[in-house]
């Protein structure tokens, strides 16, 4: 088995005449936490949609574990930018839903659901419906629903973009905790550079359209990271400069 979880080769995507992804190539290692940063509209969401086959590439390929990506075969899960908790299910049922759709055994479903409710501190609201809760809680439900699957590959598309800073810090720590506990490979998309430096083991910086990977930066600061440390600020500014350049 290859060491790479995801292998992107010469990926190109056009919408009609609009060239969005232009011959992008990169790879992501097993168990890695990677942040994709880039300006709005550069094709980040498009890339994730390609990865889970919600879209077909114009040319090039995406391999998962060395095979063409296929959400029916690979254990992938997706946290979308927009709210996507099922409104007709309670918090608990939402977390169970992915496991049930994948026909896990009753024992596994129960165990994983309890584990996630506990980890995310959602036990008190387990019987509530998403719209009774705040937007950030709804996003936590979706994150819980995704992590409950113990996905090999977790895709997160600007999951915290709509949240205020305090909630975001809390959820960022939470996602790191879940990542460590489950050993998933995580691709986390953001246009918030500070968030990327706080979370990622490696940052892939995307250019504006037509998009390629302009640069990649490894970040091996100890966790929990101190956003006011000189090294943190230096990395943040380095990436900011890269994005300003174009």
């Amino acid at each position: 088995m290859s060491e790479n979880k995801v292998e992107v080769r010469n990926l190109t995507k056009k919408f009609g005449d609009l060239l969005v992804l232009n011959n992008a190539s990169f790879s992501i290692k097993n168990g890695e936490f990677v942040c994709l940063v880039g300006p709005t509209g550069c094709g980040k969401t498009t890339f994730l949609n390609l990865l889970v086959k919600l879209l077909e590439p114009t040319s090039g390929e995406i391999l998962i574990d060395g095979e063409p990506a296929d959400p029916k075969k690979h254990n992938i899960s997706f946290v979308f930018q927009e709210p996507s908790a099922f409104p007709w299910l309670t918090v608990e049922e939402n977390i169970r839903s992915g496991l049930e759709l994948k026909h896990m055994s009753a024992g596994v479903i129960k165990e994983r659901t309890e584990e996630i409710l506990n980890m995310l501190g959602l036990e008190k609201v387990r019987k509530s419906y998403p719209h009774e809760l705040s937007a950030s809680t709804e996003q936590r439900i979706v994150i819980g629903r995704s992590f409950a699957l113990h996905p090999d590959l977790l895709l997160m598309d600007e999951p915290y973009a709509a949240m205020d800073i305090k909630v975001r810090y809390f959820l960022e720590d939470e996602v790191i905790r879940l990542w460590k506990a489950t050993g998933s490979t995580v691709i986390f998309i953001t246009h918030n550079i500070e968030e990327a430096v706080y979370l990622a083991e490696r940052c892939l910086v995307m250019s504006p359209k037509p998009t390629t990977i302009k640069s990649e930066i490894s970040i091996d600061l100890p966790r929990p990271r101190d956003i006011s440390s000189p090294e943190f600020i230096r990395l943040r500014e380095e990436i900011t400069d890269m994005i300003k350049w174009w």
């Binding site: 889970v52 959400p71 997706f78 979308f80 996507s84 759709l101 994948k102 699957l149």
Partner: peptide
């Protein structure tokens, strides 16, 4: 809401 359909698809439905 198309997001709900996408969420289902992302579970391989």
């Amino acid at each position: 809401d198309p997001m709900l359909i996408k969420a289902g698809q992302s579970f391989g439905c």
